[in-house]
Design a protein around this nucleic acid. Sequence first.
RNA 1: GGAGAAAUGGCAGAGUGGUCGAAUGCGGCGGUCUUGAAAACCGUUGUCCGCUUAUCGGCGGACCGGGGGUUCGAAUCCCUCUUUCUCCGCCA
Length: 424
Amino acid sequence: MLTLKQIRENPEEIIRRLQVKNFDAANLIDQVLATDKKRREIQTQTDHKQAELNQRSKDIGSLFKQGKTQEANHAKEQVSLLKDEIKQLNQSLRHTEDDLNKLLLRIPNIPHPSVPPGKGDSDNVKVRSGGNIPDLGKEALPHWELAEKYRLIDFEMGNKLTGAGFPVFTGKGAKLVRALISFFLDEAEKAGYREVLPPLMVNEASAYGTGQLPDKEVQMYQLATDPYYLIPTAEVPVTNIYRDVILNAGELPVKNTAYTPCFRREAGSYGKDVRGLNRVHQFDKVEIVQIQHPERSYDTLEEMVNHVEQLVQKLGLPYRIMRLCGGDLSFTSALTYDFEVFAAAQKKWLEVSSVSNFEAFQANRLKLRFREPGSKKTQLAHTLNGSALALPRIIAALMENFQTPEGIRIPEVLVPYTRFDILS
RNA sequence: GGAGAAAUGGCAGAGUGGUCGAAUGCGGCGGUCUUGAAAACCGUUGUCCGCUUAUCGGCGGACCGGGGGUUCGAAUCCCUCUUUCUCCGCCA
C-alpha cells in the first residue's frame, strides 16, 4: 500500500497518476486524508490523558511509600474518571485506525511514468522481440496432440486424479519438466541469486504482505482445516522472508530465486484459451526476487528483464517483450514487462513471464526497510520479481515449434539436463 | 495426540506489582592511546506513532511472543492463542 506520507504530501499527483490505471482515487484519497486527520487528533488527546494518568499513578505510588494511605486512596478515586475517558479514546482510536487501514488497502500502486494508458491486452506496448517463428506447414500439431502422440502428458489422468487443469507429465515429458527447472535454477545461480526452497503453503500475514489478500481469495486455494493458502507463486513466501526486517544498505540488492509448484484457482476463466497447457491450476515455475535500494530499482528491473530474455533466447523460442498498459497492470505493480513466446501450431502468443517493480508498495505492507550506514533513519526498500520462467507454456511452445517428422527436438542447452535430444 | 517447562533489546541473560525501555556481558558505532592494528579505557547504542522544531533536537505515548483481563500502577498476576524445548504416543 501507499504510505500516508506520500498521500499527505501529493494527493493531487496520486489521483492524476492513478488515472493511468483507470482508477478514480479522488474520493478515496479525500477519505484517507480526513480519517488520518481524525486519527491524529484522537491520538494527541489520548496521549495527553495517558500521560496524566501515568503521572498520577506515580504520585499514588510515592504516597503509599510515605505511608499516606488515606491520601493515596483518595487520589485513586479521582483517577477512575480519567481511566474511563482513556478507554473510550483508545477504542475510537482503534476504530479510526482500522478505517484508515481499510481505505489504504483499496488504493492501488502508482504506475511508473512510462506506463502507457490503456484498457487491456491490445494497449500493451511491444518493447522488442526476438527469435524466429518457424514455418511448420499444415501438418503441425498443437502441443496437446503431440503430448498424446509421444505420451508426454496425460490430461485425462490428471482429470481422474484431481480434476481439470492438473496435467500428469509422464516419461520423457516428466524429465523435460525436471530438466527445465534445473536449467532455470542454474541460470539464476549464475546471475547471483541464492536458491531457496520455501513452503508451498503460507499463512494469512504472508498473503497480505505481498498483496494477495485482501480480495484475491478467489485466486488462491485455501485449506479447509487450517488457515493456510497454497501459494499462487513463489513470490509470496520468498518476499515474506523479509517481512519485518531492517537491512543494512550494504546488503542490497538481496537476490533470491526459488522453484515451486504454483496453485491457481483461475476462477471464472473457462473457455477457448484453456486447452492443453495454456492454462492450468498447478504448474511449475522458477521465480527471481530482488530487494533493492529505491535509487537503483529500475536498473534492477532492466537487469531482470535481460535475464529472462536471455533464457528464452537460449531456448530458441520466438518471443516478444510487452510493457503493460495501465489497465493490465496489477494492483501492486508500478511497472511490469510481460514476456510472451509464440506457439507456432496454435499460432498464439503465450505469456510465460511477468517481471515487475513494486517499488515500496509491498515493502510498506511487509515493513521491509533498510538503513544507510551512519543513519538512524530507516526507509522502505523496493521489491521486484519475475518469472524465470513458468514451465507449462514454455513446454507448449517447445513442443509445437520444434516438432519434426522424427519427433520433437530438444534445445541444445537442455540436453545436458535431459540426456536425450529428441522426444519421440 | 497426552504431560511438563519456557518465550525479555542484534545475541546471551537478569528482572516476580511502582521511578524498568528494562541490570550485566558480548556485538555494533564514536573517541582516547598507537606509525597502523590489537588490547585497554571513556562514551554511545531498538522500533513505531503523535505534538513541536528551518535544522540539530525537545516533549509525550506505545511496544519485554500475539490478543484479552485484574490494578491507581503490569516485563512481573490471571485468561487465551501461538511458538520452542523435554518426556510419552503416533509416523515418512
